[in-house]
Structure formats: C-alpha cells, structure tokens
Design a protein around this nucleic acid. Sequence first.
DNA 1: CGGTATCCCCCGCGATACTG
DNA 2: CAGTATCGCGGGGGATACCG
Lengths: 233, 233
Amino acid sequence: MRYREDTMRRYGQFCPVAQAAEVIAERWTPLVIRELLSGSRRFNDIQRGVPLMSSALLAKRLKTLELCGIIERRSLVGGGHEYHLTQAGEELRPWVEMMGVWGQRWVRRPVSPEEADPALLMWDMRRSINVERLPDKRVVVRFDFREAPKGKRSWWLVLARPEADLCLHDPGFEVGLTVRTDAVAMASVWVGDLDLLGAIRTRLIMLKGPSHLRRAFPSWLSLSPLTEVKSAR
Amino acid sequence: MRYREDTMRRYGQFCPVAQAAEVIAERWTPLVIRELLSGSRRFNDIQRGVPLMSSALLAKRLKTLELCGIIERRSLVGGGHEYHLTQAGEELRPWVEMMGVWGQRWVRRPVSPEEADPALLMWDMRRSINVERLPDKRVVVRFDFREAPKGKRSWWLVLARPEADLCLHDPGFEVGLTVRTDAVAMASVWVGDLDLLGAIRTRLIMLKGPSHLRRAFPSWLSLSPLTEVKSAR
DNA sequence: CGGTATCCCCCGCGATACTG
DNA sequence: CAGTATCGCGGGGGATACCG
C-alpha cells in the first residue's frame, strides 16, 4: 500500500499550515492547481499551462494530488483520462486567487522576452475569450508575433460561438482579422502592464481587417481580473 | 548588485500566481512566514518555530524575503537584529490563515510521536497564553512529558502578567501546578483532535495542584482558532 | 494522445564547524 | 546569540526514449 505521505516531502510538524504546505506549496503544485481551477482537465491541456514542467513531474504531482484527495482521475470511455477537482480542491480557489492578487500587487516583474512564450500566451487568451461577445458568424483571428521562434510565430484563433479554438497551423478558413505585435507587448497587455487600446493606438499592436472587427476585437478578449489590481510599488 | 531573482528558483512565467509562488511557496517559506506573522522577530525565535530547518537555510530564506520586500531587517542598538514584516508581508496573513483552515479541514493527520516535539509544542503554547486571564500573582506551571527524550522532558512556564516565559530548566520559583502528560496527547489537544477537559477527565492529562489553579488552567491556554475548524473527512 | 521508465546530473539542503 | 563557511550527499527533477 502506498500512502500519500510517501509521495511528498514532509516538514515533521503537527501544524495544519505545515501539513497543507506539504501538499499544495510544493514546487509547481500551485501552478498545476491554477490550471485545474481554470478548467483544464486533460493531461496535455494542463501541461500547456505549465510548458516548462516535464511530463514525468506533472504525472507525479497529479498522482500526489489524487492521493491527497484534491483531484479525482476519471477514465473516459473514448480512452484517456480527465482530472477533476474534488471539493477539497475547489476550496483552494480563493487561496490561489489570493496568490494572484498578492503577486500582482507586490512581486510581479515586467514581462521579459524569455517569459513571453507565445504558446502559453495564446493558450491563456483562448481560455478566456468572451464567447458571448463574439459575432454570430465565425471569425478567424490570426496572430503574428514578430521575433518569435519559427514554430511559434503564427497562430489562428477560430472564434465560432460558443467555441474558441486555437491552431498553430492555418485551419483554412478566411482570416477576418490579423493581429501583428510582439509577444512581450501582448503579454504586457495580458497582465495589465499595458493598456490594450493604448497599445493599439501607438501601433505596438497592429490590427488589420475591416473596421467593425477591429473595433469589436478588444471586447472579445476578457483580460484577467488581475489586470484591475494595481501594483503597490 | 544582487537581484532577488538570483536567490530563488524561477518558473519562467509571466503569470502573477507563478511569480508569487516563486517567493512564498518555496520549501519552508510558508512556515517562516507563519512564524513572522505569529510575532517572532528574532532569528532564534523564528527558528524555534521551525526546529528542523537548518540555520543556514533559514538565513537564506530570510535574505530572499528581505530582497523581495516581505520583511525588513533592523539592527538593534543592543546588538542583534529583528525581522519585521512589511505591508507586503502582512498582507500574506489571510493567505497563511487559509492554508491553516484548509489543512485542518482536508489534510491534517493525527499527531504522530515523531511530530510531537515538546519543544515546538511548548513554544507554541507559550506564544498563545491568554495573558489577560492569568491570576494577579505569578504562577509557575511545570510540564512533564512522559517518554520524551531526557533534555525535553520537563518545562517550566512562568506566568506573570503580562508575561509568559518558558524555561527548560527549573527557574527556582515555587511550582503552582504540575501537568503530567505525553507530548502526543498534549499536541492532539493543541490541534483540536482531543478535547482538553475530556483529556483531563480521562487522565490523559493529569493536573496536580490546588483546585483553583486546576480549574483555571484551561482558560490560560488559548487554543488555536483552528481547533474550531472541523475536519471535512 | 497520455503518460512510464530509465538514466543521470546538479544543486538544494543537511551537517558540522567556526566566528564576531 | 546570530549567524557564516564549507563540504558532501541524496534525491528532485530534466532529458530522452519508449509504450499502450
């Protein structure tokens, strides 16, 4: 029999804060929980949110979280699995949100080029597209990131209510709007360091397409609520 | 010039949750913050709350926390230093408290003999003595832990309003009350697994002394508010 | 796709000693 | 008391290959 205690490093204290920290404050774990809270259920989807984490390590953390009763692993009929938060896991939502707010207020750094990974950024953006704001007809938005490595330069966001799909290769549909920018600028908008409308005005972000789409575009992107949190420094 | 980023492991993400986690979710750090929040300011006092952490590592974490603006290190005139939480650090209080509540609800284990360190337990208890409930006259409470290693068996709590002092050697004052128990039982009461009055009744905890002191004793110990939080399992 | 298995490196951290 | 310095190790975790 395997006990959950065997899969994680202990602190040797009876304090509940310490025993919680053993589980949820281990390296990478808060980010994995963040992904689960944001709705990712499949292994690969979770991993797209933590691309620098090796799959072996992600698998290990998921196993620990399962043993600790924070997630439940369900087998799918079509093959594969889904990871669902239990109530214990769901109750971590305010805890993770507080980390976000605190991080935004006190320790966030300006986006650096190394951190501005277009894949992670696009994955984040796709996840929080304001689907109900989308037009009735399908719109395809193409993103071009200057200076991004070859394989991550162009992305297609296929917006068709109530779905938002992300492609790394041309899906073939007609492109309605093209967004030309660099990943640092787009990510800076994303985390609230830059104002989207301002960035468009100063042509840090350039939109190409019919004016009704250009005008509507900002409303499709629902920026993280954390962009409202102002830095305290 | 040293940057705070050099002193900690990074995640390489622009997400505020990730950047917060780099600082506050590193190993041992939540416990160090817990100690600071509970009022410890001197290096050795902090370390008494995390006795299994090496002093080298504690010094390193304190340095990182200082570089990140969470604590401020002040030199004292009489020599030595004090570590004070900044506003950024103080704002972590609800975050740590949530970890405690969540840990209590979902992952706390029954106290094990290895975890029931009398030194840590007594240090915790001393810290949250209900000073205003103490009698006018000084009372000395002696704790005897059966089965504890020689050097940690007997402790003296010198209760003299508004102070509560802890000694590992007989301070010489007359002992008003003697508490005879074992560390697991006392710690179980401390974390809420055991009811203090019940444990006294079943003689898991034995009090020796005048009846007015025996009756008053439970009111001096202000158990952690977490004892009110019931396990959800 | 959704992971496991294996190898191996490196550095986080514990232990110990030492210092102002 | 309040740390620093040094050394050595263990295992966390990265890289790669592989499997169902």
